[in-house]
Design a protein around this nucleic acid. Structure first.
Lengths: 387, 387
DNA sequence: TTGTATTAGTTAGTTCATTAAACAAATTAA
DNA sequence: TTAATTTGTTTAATGAACTAACTAATACAA
């Protein structure tokens, strides 16, 4: 049970201070005191710890107002590194960032296996390599987070990864035994939503991010925490039934949303209509340029069903910001406007609906950011996004 | 901004201690110390405050084990009263409870108006009456909570009450000006979910409660907080589209869930089929006793569409406990089993699905409990339910 | 150039709630 | 009657925040 004592309040205030430094990027002790309502004495004491730990650095800036010149404080991005890993079907992405979330190194490794042991070995090999390579800096690699494209329960055990056919595997424990440091697993949609919040939408405390690729994933940041549900399986919105008695789904029901509004469903319709397999985004782009009527019809239907699900999602969650991550919508002209026009219910309340600007790499960037947030012991952070 | 200081620690620990006293109903200082991991000295100091404030009373119980006999502590239910008000269409219910949530007085007043000013006056009149009548006891009436059958935003302004045709009214402020004490407004489904958690489902930190009367309401308790969404409008699940291009709804969309799975929808179907208006529950009960096939068909369809929506709700929220409050399901034989059988998806995860045992009065009891929780400054409480 | 106002940051001492440890009280069982 | 055990209180120490007074550095005006 968490009880209050002196060290607990110090932790609370430290977390607040780090959070403000990151939010403002550069800020003086005096301004920290004003924002947090902690006294300048308290701020000084806490900052002195942070300087000692090399997590914060001081800078003298030009200043042209009356009074003593403030000493600006900022987070020391060079104190360590965070490693984000995206364990996707067919490829594993590794991104190493500094403590400010700026990528330092990125690499994508193709894999041609679903075998757990083989993939585990590949992960161990690469993590060890990064650990050796980046042991300079005060703290070295401060955290590792792996994105899982499937169900991860609250105890970080992988319950199910559809495309790998993995069920109930303890990757966290297997990795930790091999590399000797703490590893965290997180669902890919959750990490995308974290990235959208941390790198882009700095002002919201309520963000949904839906990813429309092989299925439909939903990640949610609410009051600066993931919304996970009781076991960690919340956001399985792809299996929301929107057509009673509709197409059968592997989940055992009929008429699930992702049978109508995932990119996979669009590719399937196109393959059928065009009698063509292995259709690429480039091919679709070309058809769109040519005003192909089949593609138009299929895309319009995609947007129709997508809007129904979005309407439901918005009524259910009453979000502030909704981010959609879909390559097809990015290339289809005027797609966002069309969706907006479909969301005309009196009840639906949201402030902003956008297409993701980060795109597919949001997942691995979110993993880096989550590792940083664990290390700094702050529930949320604002980091600059440099494209 | 909330920062940590000594008084904040004390508040945290006090809240923990009160919560444990309520959970255990009777507990000694020594056991409180074991459960909370606070030292006995700390517990003694805090309890001494609570005794001074008459919020806690000591009892000597029989004891037959070795060592000094413990002094049992329990919450002093007689220190004050909580007033819950259910502002429903056609009637206003007032329930006054003691600090342990036991009703002391209950009264239902029929109203024949939707006029805001008239209803406001009625509320003021009655609140003032209760204040005078129950000013004995150490604290008198410690809190007043009003249940609103409509949208209440996070700043406690009534956005919309469909059946009263109220839009954007500030009942909280109008009442507070007139009666001179703090008043809180809360959505009725939220209060029902609070009551289910506080009086019945003591062990869960994740509960959904759906009310199927005029429309479909959804209240959610997650990690001992209401799940409200960004503005307070989350849980508008009745307007989830489950039949694309289906029946038109007042919200501006077509095929909303509450057009198929609210009790109102059942009454409408029955009225049409039986060519009869003003159908009562007693009438339906009689038809059911006679194995009426029209009623059977309509009820089976109700359960079919209800299950679709429940499936969606469960996939989206991954709840621990789901409580359904519906009089029709209570009287229809085997209804719960039929719903269970419809929820066969691989993805759906929930632990328990039940019909409400508290029923319609959950809303006003939840209002009392919420007033108590505000007064004691504990986010959640366990109270005994005495039918 | 000098003094004054202003802002930034530090230092000394106080306050408050916790903890640890010793103690007092009350009870069972040998 | 004594030992063992458990409950609850007292006392001193600790830690982190606070207040208040200080030093430092700067702009600006006389």
């Amino acid at each position: 049970m968490i009880t209050g004592d002196a060290s607990y309040i110090k932790k609370i205030n430290r977390s607040l201070i780090i959070r403000e430094i990151l939010r403002e990027e550069m800020i003086s002790r005096a301004d920290l005191s004003k924002i947090t309502a902690l006294t300048r004495a308290t701020i000084s004491a806490q900052v002195s710890d942070l300087l000692e730990e090399e997590l914060v650095v001081e800078t003298q800036l030009e200043h042209n107002s009356v009074g003593r010149k403030p000493i600006m404080l900022s987070l020391n991005g060079h104190a360590g590194y965070a490693l984000g890993i995206d364990l996707d079907f067919g490829q594993v992405s590794f991104t190493l960032s500094n403590l400010l979330g700026s990528p330092v190194s990125s690499e994508i490794i193709r894999i041609h296996t679903n075998n757990y042991a083989e993939i585990l070995e590949l992960l161990i090999l690469n993590i060890t390599k990064y650990q050796k390579e980046f042991s300079d800096s005060r703290y070295g690699i401060v955290g590792i987070v792996v994105a899982i494209h499937g169900l991860v329960s609250n105890d970080e055990i992988i319950q199910y990864v559809p495309r790998f056919h993995w069920k109930n595997v303890n990757l966290k424990s297997d990795l930790e035994k091999a590399v000797g440091v703490e590893i965290h697993l997180e669902n890919n949609a959750n990490l995308s939503s974290f990235a959208e919040r941390v790198f882009i939408h700095h002002e919201t405390d309520n963000l949904l991010c839906t990813t429309l690729y092989s299925g439909i994933g939903l990640g949610m940041m609410m009051n600066n925490k993931f919304f996970r549900g009781h076991d960690g399986f919340a956001g399985e919105i792809g299996h929301m039934i929107i057509v009673p008695g509709g197409k059968p789904c592997t989940c055992g029901n009929e008429g699930c949303w992702e049978k109508y509004a995932s990119e996979t469903s669009v590719f399937e319709y196109l393959s059928e209509t065009k009698s063509m397999s292995n259709i690429t985004y480039e091919q679709i782009q070309q058809w769109m340029n040519e005003d192909d009527s089949d593609v138009y019809e299929i895309m319009e239907q995609f947007i129709y069903y997508l809007s129904i699900g979005l309407n439901n999602m918005i009524n259910i969650y009453n979000p502030d910001v909704v981010v959609i991550d879909s390559e097809l919508l990015r290339i289809y002209p005027d797609s966002l406007n069309k969706i907006h026009q479909n969301l005309h219910s009196q009840i639906s309340h949201y402030r902003e609906l956008t297409l993701s600007t980060i795109g597919k790499k949001s997942c691995v960037l979110g993993a880096c950011a989550l590792a940083i947030s664990h290390f700094l012991d702050v529930p949320i952070l604002n980091l600059p996004y440099k494209d």
